[in-house]
């Protein structure tokens, strides 16, 4: 009898600790979701505001008495129609796609080769160069655009979107190289030694082993390069002034802000359309992107 009582006591103690664990877990989840909901609402406000404003008539936008978060006087697509048919928006879009594609391609080729060399072909000064690459990235572009203006002016490239293809890699290559160095460094050394014995040369090792294994890192770097070349504002503002060479960021603003008149509907429609490609890219590649950025934290 005593034994039974004692056993029951032990059982209830066990159950008690289980219940307490469950309760803790539930509270932790509740707190996490609460924080996430606040976070999501906060960051979804701007795009929601853009969407709502872009679908309002000019009259409703100008009427300060209406609720800015709701469409009260009917939906209109006039801003989108105006943007796509009466402005050079499509030209900006095309130019931006060209610039982003070239910048991403150039960045990835240089970064992958540089990162492979710096992480695997140990040579004199490779450690210093690797650190130097990252330090270069820390120099803000607001300091660089004046000397760069002189340089590209000297090269006769001012007022052409090709200047951006030349200049953006100065921002993207250092950071992407740094990401790739970290990712390549997490690949065990035995893997390249195995490939070396299997008969691979350095280029085959890079193409057939390193790039496939480091794909998440590669995608993270690609997204970064794409985002920089898609969203940069300062360089196109400084280097380009013709409509037919302009890119989305500066083009949309200069077209839809005339003096002190802001075409809010058009601006919001333009911003929304311009933001769509990066959002779509992120949505598809988010898992790889996160895995790429956190590789150093979890791999030995």
């Amino acid at each position: 009898m005593t034994n039974i009582v004692r056993n029951n006591g032990a059982l209830s103690a066990l159950l008690g600790s289980k219940t307490s664990l469950h309760t803790n877990r539930r509270w932790a989840l509740f707190a996490s979701y609460a924080c996430l909901i606040v976070f999501v609402i906060f960051f979804l406000c701007p795009p929601f505001y853009m969407l709502v404003t872009s679908l309002k008539t000019n009259a409703e936008i100008a009427n300060l008495a209406t609720n800015p978060w709701l469409i009260e006087q009917g939906i209109t697509t006039e801003h989108y129609t105006h943007l796509l048919t009466e402005t050079a928006f499509l030209t900006y879009f095309k130019n931006t796609v060209i610039v982003a594609t070239f910048v991403v391609a150039i960045t990835m080729v240089i970064s992958v080769l540089a990162a492979y060399a710096l992480s695997r072909l140990s040579f004199w000064g490779s450690g210093v160069i690797a650190t130097g690459v990252f330090l270069v990235y820390l120099v803000p572009d607001s300091l660089l655009f004046i000397p760069l203006f002189k340089i590209v002016g000297g090269l006769g490239l001012l007022n052409s979107y090709w200047v951006l293809v030349l200049v953006y890699p100065t921002l993207t290559v250092p950071f992407c190289t740094w990401i790739m160095i970290g990712y390549f460094a997490s690949i065990p050394k035995e893997l390249d030694e195995a490939a070396l014995i299997d008969g691979a040369n350095h280029m085959q090792m890079l193409l057939k082993v390193f790039i496939p294994v480091a794909l998440p890192g590669l995608i993270a770097a690609t997204i970064f390069a794409f985002t920089v070349s898609w969203a940069s504002f300062l360089y196109p503002l400084a280097f380009i002034y013709s409509d037919n060479q302009m890119v989305l960021t500066v083009g949309t603003v200069t077209t839809l802000i005339k003096g002190d008149v802001f075409h809010w509907g058009g601006l919001m429609a333009g911003a929304l359309l311009a933001a769509a490609p990066p959002v779509i890219l992120y949505a598809f590649l988010m898992d790889y992107y996160i895995s790429g950025l956190t590789s150093g934290a979890t791999k030995g």
Binding site: E190, A195, I197, D198, G199, P212
Partner: peptide, 27 residues
């Protein structure tokens, strides 16, 4: 190494993680 006609087995296997067993063996 590739021209010494040797093969090596490593402590941590050093298998190519993105390849199947067949692709690993035939690499």
């Amino acid at each position: 190494p590739k021209d010494r006609d040797i093969a090596m087995v490593f402590q941590n296997y050093a298998l190519y993680p993105h390849m199947t067993v067949f692709q690993n063996m035939s690499f």
